[in-house]
């Protein structure tokens, strides 16, 4: 197949987000309060979920399978009835001003939900129609979006002829056709290869740079660390951590690092840095804990001063990964 599975380069995107005037004003883009959802079968999917997003934010909603991510998104987009709680999108309450609220939102769902017999361009242009945008306006806009998402040469194909990655990008184009201020993506990169995933990341970065507020769910911690400004971790229907990526990491009161010595002097070294709760790993390797007040530098300096050479200091584990495991341990549904 000729067309590369990569998404628009930055230069092709220029001007694409010109519609975004309001940004970074501190205006709340999304205010979610005490969302509860009990499904008909009795499953309590959400048990009082609250979080905020300022305009221009990029929030990653992380959580294991069945945590309630898709349920939250369903409520935001009007596809799931909430049991209780409130949601406001750019100040518009989803109950009282649902039309205004919906105009602000574009959504890329977890599951494919377009008609596979329709042509790519029609899917995008018809979506504009449902927002009251005439074809004459929607058509050039759709062409531009498809171009940005490297789908332009496929625009007249029936959508079933697209590859899996192309179908995801088609749903992104469809979600953006009415120029929403808040883009919601439910696991957009699930089952997408590494190259395409990086292409999608670039595209999302361009969008946020243009002022679009983005809420994305993901299972990939790397993705959250790469893209998001804020992270909320949800488990079993409850937000168990919420803040900046840095802030979440600081919830790890200490981090374990592995210190590799030049010589096999781990026991002597342990005596020097006993304040760092050392653990011997190998004759020349030990783990030490760096708590919020200490620094690695102090430990290394102390060792060097005692004549013990330090060859290498390595982080013991994926950082966010570790927070995630600690917070959700035993939590997977």
């Amino acid at each position: 197949m000729a067309s590369p599975e990569t998404i628009a380069k930055a230069d092709r995107f220029s001007g694409g987000a010109a519609w975004q005037e309001t940004r970074g004003s501190g205006e709340p883009a999304l205010v979610v309060r005490e969302l509860r959802k009990v499904y008909d079968g009795g499953t309590e999917a959400l048990k009082g979920v609250s979080f905020d997003m300022p305009a221009g934010d990029f929030l990653a909603l992380l959580g294991p399978n069945g945590a309630g991510k898709t349920t939250v998104i369903g409520i935001l987009t009007g596809l799931v009835h909430k049991t209780s709680g409130t949601v406001a999108v750019f100040g518009e309450d989803i109950d009282r001003n649902h039309q205004a609220a919906r105009r602000h939102i574009g959504v890329v769902p977890q599951e494919l939900n377009f008609n596979i017999f329709e042509r790519v361009i029609d899917i995008v242009v018809n979506q504009a129609g449902y927002y009251g945008i005439p074809r004459s306006t929607a058509l050039p806009r759709a062409e531009r979006l498809l171009e940005q998402l490297s789908l332009h040469d496929k625009r007249n194909e029936r959508s079933r002829n697209l590859s899996g990655g192309m179908k995801r990008r088609l749903m992104i184009a469809r979600a953006l056709i009415h120029q929403p201020r808040l883009l919601i993506l439910d696991e957009p990169t699930a089952g997408v290869d590494v190259e395409l995933r990086r292409g999608m990341w670039d595209f999302l970065r361009q969008l946020t740079a243009g002022g679009t507020t983005i809420l994305m769910t993901t299972h990939y911690l790397e993705e959250a660390e790469q893209l998001a400004r804020h992270v909320a971790i949800i488990n079993r229907g409850t937000i168990i951590a919420d803040g900046t990526v840095k802030g979440i990491l600081s919830r790890l009161h200490s981090e374990v690092v592995t210190v590799e010595l030049v010589e096999e002097k781990a026991e002597a070294a342990a005596a020097v840095v006993h304040a760092f709760r050392p653990k011997l790993v190998e004759p020349g390797v030990l783990d030490i804990e760096i708590d919020s007040k200490a620094t690695v530098g102090t430990a290394v300096a102390a060792l060097e001063a005692a004549g013990i050479g330090v060859k290498m200091v390595r982080s013991k584990s994926g950082r966010l990964e570790e927070v995630f495991m600690r917070l959700t341990s035993g939590g997977a549904a």
Partner: peptide, 14 residues
Amino acid sequence: FARNIDEILVSPTP
């Protein structure tokens, strides 16, 4: 089948 009714249901169409 496709659940493309969602396309309309997420829109402001009354």
